[in-house]
Design a protein around this nucleic acid. Structure first.
Length: 306
DNA sequence: GACAATGTTACAGT
DNA sequence: CACTGTAACATTGT
């Protein structure tokens, strides 16, 4: 599920838990013939290489580029994890039920009881006897290794554009990005990781809703004033991030397996048919498909401009 | 049972 | 070459 705030929350959790620990062993049951030629651990021969590269190394810190989690190792090499739709990293004591079977948490509570935490396809056993595991219900996740000094040139990262929370992401730059794709719908630009990184379907809809911009508005038709409003709302919505809590509508779990509550309330995402939550607006939230993704918006205060 | 789901990519078609 | 739409990955919740 994760978009930028969820990935950032996971990175924060990693820095609070696994820094300084050595990787003792790695286990996976990811395996797919479709990945035979790829630099991903789903390719069994690549997984052999991956294990040789990371076993015995210590986790120095975690950080993030776009929606990618990066585990920096003590020799300046990197483990890259993209959680895609349903992946999330969990930290705790895990045991394998049988020699080839599933891994389960020793602890009662969310780690073991929550169904979204049960799809464990990758396990790092650490030097303190605990495990860092990747639960990935739909098995979309990507895990790979970047040699030291390779981050700048890695093909897994070369397409990732500027981070919208960066202080360098200002109106001039955002405007430049929009002007480079004048005929493209604004929502597709927001979702394109090679133009702006970290925004996904939820935060795109929420940012456009708060800015009063129709998801299908063409970049060239958005005024400077509207661009400025949108930029500010993107930053605000992303920085709102997540907090520990209990949001039954989210599949995201933090590193301890707990659900996350959006601090910045969802006003429009998946609210089709409900009355618009903008004060005094009387619109009914509508959903359409834009760039292959369901888009919820208010047809009254998010007007098309031309 | 039908449907949609937070991401990304490959591929076919225009 | 640029863009668009669809399927694919697998399993859940509604």
């Amino acid at each position: 599920m994760p978009e930028l705030p969820e990935v950032q929350t996971t990175v924060k959790g990693l820095n609070e838990t696994v820094v300084g620990l050595k990787i003792e062993t790695v286990w996976t049951d990811y395996k797919s013939e479709a990945y035979e030629d790829k630099d991903e651990i789903k390719n069994p021969s690549y997984f052999g290489f991956f294990k040789r590269m990371v076993i015995g190394r210590t986790i120095k810190k975690a950080d993030r580029i776009g929606k990618n989690v990066l585990l920096r190792l003590n020799d300046n090499s990197t483990i890259l994890i993209h959680m895609k739709m349903t992946g999330h990293l969990l930290y705790g004591v895990y045991k394998q039920k049988t020699k080839t079977g599933v891994w389960v948490s020793d602890n009662k509570g969310p780690l073991r009881d929550d169904s979204f935490n049960r799809y464990i396809h990758l396990v790092f056993s650490l030097s303190n006897g605990k495990q860092l595991v990747l639960s990935d219900m739909r098995t979309f996740a990507k895990v790979t290794f970047i040699p030291k000094e390779g981050t700048a040139t890695s093909k897994h990262l070369s397409e990732i554009a500027i981070d919208p929370l960066s202080p360098l992401f200002i109106l001039d730059l955002f405007s430049h990005i929009l002007d480079a794709k004048p005929e493209t719908k604004v929502k597709q630009i927001l979702l394109d990781q090679s133009l702006v990184s970290g925004i996904g379907n939820i935060y795109a809809d929420e940012s456009l809703f708060r800015s009063g911009i129709h998801p299908c508005a063409l970049a060239k038709n958005i005024s400077t004033q509207a661009r400025s409003t949108l930029l500010n709302n993107i930053k605000r919505v992303l920085a709102g991030g997540v907090d520990l809590g209990n949001d039954p509508s989210s599949d995201y779990r933090d590193i301890h397996g707990n659900r996350a509550l959006f601090k910045e309330e969802r006003l429009v995402y998946r609210k089709k048919g409900e009355i618009c939550m903008k004060p005094r607006c009387t619109g009914i939230i509508t959903s359409i498909v834009v760039g292959g993704r369901t888009s919820s918006f208010c047809p009254v205060h998010q007007k098309m401009v031309s």
